[in-house]
Amino acid sequence: MELGLALAGTSVRAASTVSPRWGAAVAMPLFASVAKPRPVHRDDEYTMSRARRRTIRIAGVHRRGTDVTVYEWGSGERTVVLAHGWDGRASQFATLVRDLVAEGFRVVAFDAPAHGESAGRRTYLVDWIDVLTQLQAHHGRFAAVVGHSFGGLGSLVAVAGGVEAERVVTVASPADAELLLAQFQTMLGYSDGVARELTVRFVRRYFPTEQDPFAWLSAVRRPLSAGTPLLVVHDERDRVVPFGEAARIAGANPGSISLATTGLGHSRILKADAFLDAVLDFVTTDAAPHGAARADGNAVRRVVPPAPALV
Rank of each mutant, 00 (worst) to 15 (best):
R54C: 07
V12I: 14
Q185T: 12
L153T: 10
G251P: 05
I129C: 10
N253C: 09
R122D: 01
A195E: 04
G60E: 12
F207E: 06
P39I: 11
F31P: 06
Y71L: 13
V18D: 04
Y206W: 07
N298W: 10
S75F: 07
S75G: 09
V168R: 01
P289S: 09
E45V: 10
V131F: 08
T123Y: 02
R78M: 08
V300S: 10
D130I: 03
S75Y: 07
F202W: 09
H290A: 14
A175N: 00
A195S: 14
V200M: 01
E117G: 06
S16K: 05
F282C: 03
T66K: 10
R21I: 06
L3R: 05
P20C: 04
R222N: 15
V131M: 09
A83Y: 00
A309M: 12
E164I: 15
P113S: 12
R54Y: 05
E210L: 13
E166N: 11
G151E: 05
S149V: 01
R89E: 06
E72L: 13
G60Q: 12
P254V: 04
I56Y: 04
F184A: 03
R57K: 11
G193V: 12
T95W: 02
W22Y: 08
N298S: 15
R106C: 00
D99G: 09
E178A: 10
F275H: 02
D296Q: 08
A25F: 13
R38P: 07
T284H: 12
L180T: 14
E197D: 11
A165Y: 03
I58L: 05
V303I: 01
E210H: 09
Q183F: 12
R89M: 08
M1C: 00
G140N: 14
G65C: 14
R106Q: 02
N253V: 08
L224C: 11
E178M: 09
R222H: 13
V108S: 00
S75I: 04
A15M: 08
V279P: 01
E117T: 10
G244E: 15
L181A: 12
V163Q: 13
A160R: 11
V18T: 06
E103I: 01
W86V: 00
T95N: 07
G4M: 03
L179G: 01
G255V: 05
P223D: 14
R201G: 00
T285F: 06
P208K: 11
A177R: 13
E164C: 13
A299E: 05
R268C: 04
L156E: 08
G104S: 09
W86R: 02
G297D: 00
L280H: 00
G9Q: 00
F31Y: 15
R294P: 09
I58H: 06
A51P: 05
P306Y: 01
R239Q: 07
T10Y: 03
T262H: 15
V131H: 13
A51T: 01
L280A: 04
T95E: 12
Q211T: 13
P305H: 10
A90G: 05
G255N: 11
A14R: 11
V145A: 10
T47A: 10
S173H: 10
V126G: 06
S91I: 11
